[in-house]
């Protein structure tokens, strides 16, 4: 199976080729909560996550709200 390499929240990760943003969220156990996803500086909205296929060297950020003043 061929793989791609991405950076997720600053860490290198290996994924099966053809993985979508939605697949990544499932893999990270982040699919059931509200998160923001940014791929290469572009926000990927929930309705686009199934169709957004990740590419080699993509920079991905998954973000949530934490406590803050």
């Amino acid at each position: 199976m061929s793989t791609i390499h991405i950076t997720l929240n600053g860490e290198k990760r290996e994924l099966p080729s053809g993985s979508s943003v939605a697949d990544l969220l499932k893999l990270e156990c982040a699919e059931s909560q509200k998160v923001a996803v940014v791929v290469n500086e572009n926000i990927v909205r929930p309705d686009k996550r199934e169709s957004a296929v990740l590419q080699e060297n993509d920079q991905v950020e998954i973000l949530v709200f934490a406590g803050g003043g």
Binding site: N9, V35, I62, L63, A66, G68
Partner: peptide
């Protein structure tokens, strides 16, 4: 107020 932070699966 809330703050934006990276998701951490260990501290979901």
């Amino acid at each position: 107020t809330v703050a934006l932070r990276r998701f951490n699966r260990e501290q979901a």
